[in-house]
Design a protein around this nucleic acid. Structure first.
Lengths: 225, 225
DNA sequence: CTCATCCTTCGACCTCCATCGAAGCATCCG
DNA sequence: CGGATGCTTCGATGGAGGTCGAAGGATGAG
C-alpha cells in the first residue's frame, strides 16, 4: 500500500477500449450525445450507457441533459492533457491500432484538440505569435502581451467577453504529433471559432479540420514564420 | 473502431493497482529490483514477475539483469510524463488512496521526479535560472544560454560529458504539486546528483528528499528569486 | 559441492467486468 | 393520446486476467 493519488483508478477507466474510444472522440471538444458515442466506440447503446456512468462517476466526463438527449464533454483540460500524453506515448511506440490511412497526414496537419487548433497549423500560429512578442512565454505560463491584445482584437475577438469567464485565457498545450506547444485556453478556443467564421477552416468528421484555399493564404499572411 | 494510437492498451497496463504501485515507485528514478517492487506493490514475487513481464512487453519499463538481480527502470521520460499527468489529475480530484500523512507536505516541498529535482525546490531552481537568463525558455523547448553554460560549469558539472549522451540536455517537466515547470533532462539529473555531492540534499525513502541545513542556505544563495 | 537467494513458469482458482437481449422510463412529435 | 426516439436498468453469459502455491532454473556465497 503506497500513499499518493490513486492513479490506477483513473487509468483503469481509460484502459477499456470502448471507453478509450469514447474519450478520444470527446477530445474534439464537441459535446456528443450518448448514441453518437456508442457508434463511435462500436458498442450498443446499453453498454455505452454503463460506460458513461462509470466515466462520470470517475470524474473524467461531464454530462448535461437537454430534452431527451444527453450531451457529454470531457470534465477538464487536465483530462485532455492526460489523454494527449497517453496518445503521445502510444504514437511514439508506433503501436497504431490500425494501419495509418491517408487521414493521418491530415490529422497531423490540422486538428482540434479539446476545442482549440492543434497540429502543424496550431504550432505555426503559436510560434508566430511568440516570435512577434504577441505572446509572452514564460516558464510559469503564457500571457497575452499588450501588443497581442491589439492584434487579437483586430482579428475580431471580444477580449472582454473572454475575460469574464473563469477559465484561463492562455494555456500552452503540448502536441503529440509535433511535440511542440500550441495555444489552448479560452483564447485558443475563440481563435478557432473565429477562423471558422472567416471561412478559413471547416470542421470535418471527428477532430479533423479542413483548410480552405482562402484560409491557406490568409493564414500565412496573418501568422508569418 | 477508430484510428489512431492505441491508448487503451497502455492505460490498461497502468490501470491495475499492483502495476500502478510499481510504476509510481519507479518514478523515483532509482533502479529497483523485482523483489523490492513486489514488496512495494504488496504482492508476492510470482505476481510481480508476471506484472513486470507485461510492463516490459508494453514498453513502459526497461529491465537489466545484473547477477541474480533484475533491475527495473521506467522506459523513457515520456512514460514518466504520463504518470505525472495522471497523478496530477488524480490529486486534483482529491481522490487519495489513504489519508495524507505528514509525508505529503515534505513530498510537495522536494522530491525526485524520474531522477531530477521536483516540488517547490525544483520549481524555484527552474524559475531562478530562467529569470537570470541562464535558461532560454521558448515555446518549442528549453535550452542552456551561454551564460548558463558558465554557471553550470562553475557549479561543478561536466557539460561535455553530458552532451556525449543521446538524451536531451534540457527538458521542461510539469509538476503535479506545483503545477509549474521544473528542469528535467540530463542536466536536471546532473544537478540533482551534484547537490547530493555538495551535501545539500539527502535521499530519504522512496522519492522523498531531505534538505540539510547547509543545503537550505546555500541553495537560497545560488538560486535567488 | 551445497545451500541460499532471486526470479520464473505452470496450473488452478476466482473475481471482476464488458457485452448484449429484453424490458422499463422519460421526452418529444403529431 | 399513441408512436417514436433516446436513454437506462436488470439479468445472464462469457471471457479475461489477477492471484498465489508449488516447483524448477539460475546465480552467488561459503
Amino acid at each position: 500500500m503506497r500513499e499518493g493519488p490513486d492513479i490506477a483508478r483513473i487509468a483503469a477507466l481509460i484502459g477499456d477500449p470502448a471507453r478509450a474510444n469514447i474519450l478520444t472522440a470527446l477530445l474534439s471538444g464537441k459535446a456528443l450525445t450518448a448514441t453518437e458515442l456508442a457508434a463511435e466506440a462500436g458498442v450498443t447503446a446499453q453498454t455505452a450507457s454503463t460506460h458513461l456512468a462509470r466515466l462520470a462517476e470517475g470524474g473524467l466526463i461531464e454530462t448535461r441533459r437537454q430534452g431527451r438527449h444527453k450531451y457529454v464533454t470531457l470534465a477538464s483540460e487536465e483530462v485532455a492533457a492526460v489523454l494527449e500524453a497517453l496518445t503521445g506515448l502510444a504514437a511514439g511506440q508506433g503501436h497504431l491500432r490500425t494501419r495509418t490511412g491517408p487521414k493521418d497526414a491530415e490529422l497531423r496537419r490540422a486538428r482540434v484538440c479539446y476545442n482549440h487548433l492543434a497540429g502543424d497549423m496550431g504550432v505555426r500560429l503559436f510560434e508566430s505569435m511568440a516570435a512577434r512578442r504577441l505572446l509572452e512565454v514564460r516558464p510559469d505560463g503564457v500571457t497575452l502581451a499588450p501588443a497581442g491584445q491589439d492584434f487579437v482584437s483586430a482579428f475580431g475577438i471580444d477580449l472582454a467577453a473572454l475575460r469574464s469567464h473563469r477559465t484561463p485565457l492562455c494555456l500552452p498545450c503540448l502536441d503529440w504529433s509535433e511535440r511542440r506547444s500550441h495555444l489552448a485556453g479560452s483564447l485558443g478556443r475563440a481563435m478557432l471559432t473565429r477562423m471558422q467564421e472567416l471561412g478559413w477552416l471547416r470542421r470535418a468528421e471527428g477532430r479533423l479540420i479542413r483548410v480552405t484555399a482562402r484560409g491557406e493564404t490568409d493564414f500565412a499572411r496573418a501568422f508569418p514564420v
